[in-house]
Design a binder for these strands. Structure first.
Lengths: 145, 145
DNA sequence: GCGCCAACGTTGGCGCGACCAACAATACAG
DNA sequence: CTGTATTGTTGGTCGCGCCAACGTTGGCGC
């Protein structure tokens, strides 16, 4: 009486979207412990890996809309995790820079997120985890051109 | 300059949620052609596979909140795709039944959705598709207890 | 039979992530 | 110099998942 229709369970898009709900929940739980959200982590990670960037760059790199970058950077700035300044070379742009507390926050989030990855993949042995990651990566690369 | 941080691209949860965005987009495009949404398909599929059911049953089977089932059934009823009647044996319940036009709508959606699955998995050969489906199924089964 | 608890449908709300349209300011190519 | 493109910003929309509350109804223990 609790069965899910095979029309759904057999479709990769169903498996993907349903599983992404769990992945999102696990990640959110990890983030909220540190008072952050998914968008915050994305921006902090991009700043750490590529250094100071404009908001438009952040949006492109993190797959975020410009308007959402605005709110995210504002929130991070209020918490002291990033600096936001007008770019003197191009006064249209803001240069967003990771601060020391921001880097520390990123490290905290990373640790919590790694645990979430483990929970997510719990039932799979290591080889299967790599296979899954590879297949997902292939598909994602194909779809985001 | 358009690179995504490895901190994200290496995490299964990132791959999953990002790919689910594409899966959801493909499915939505397939549905909107027939004036439907994801919730509609779920309910129609459950009714077709298990027959007449109460709204609470539909919610459990389709992984939907009771309140969302209300709105979905109402929308389907307005389009003539389901019948909704009070259950004479248990006056708390509504019996929701798939109509002939509803079955036809389900077939239309199924066809469009199959095409979307193919687009989603386009870069993968058949064996990889099966492997991916199996791995995702294992994880989903584990997480929804 | 009565009282309590559980289940059902319904309403009204929230949060997150994705996205869109419009605008002023600025840069840049022709 | 003139038009085009980019950037930041504001103010929305939508889908999906979820939660609290309420009145109605059934079923169970006593």
């Amino acid at each position: 009486m609790e069965n899910t229709p095979e029309r759904l369970t057999g479709k990769p898009s169903w498996l993907l979207t349903q599983l992404s709900v769990h992945a999102h929940r696990l990640a959110t739980e990890a983030f909220t412990g540190a008072g952050a959200r998914g968008y915050h982590y994305r921006v902090l990670a991009a700043l750490d890996e590529f250094g100071t960037a404009s908001q438009a760059d952040l949006g492109r790199r993190c797959n975020m809309d410009r308007s959402d970058v605005v709110a995210t950077v504002t929130a991070l700035q209020e918490r002291g995790f990033v600096d936001r300044a007008q770019d003197p070379k191009d006064r249209r742009r803001n240069t967003v820079t990771l601060t020391e507390p921001g880097k520390a926050q990123l490290d905290r989030l990373d640790e919590a997120l790694d645990q979430a990855q483990d929970d997510l993949l719990a039932p799979l042995p290591e080889p299967d985890r790599r296979t899954l990651t590879r297949l997902l990566g292939t598909l994602l690369a194909h779809h985001q051109r």
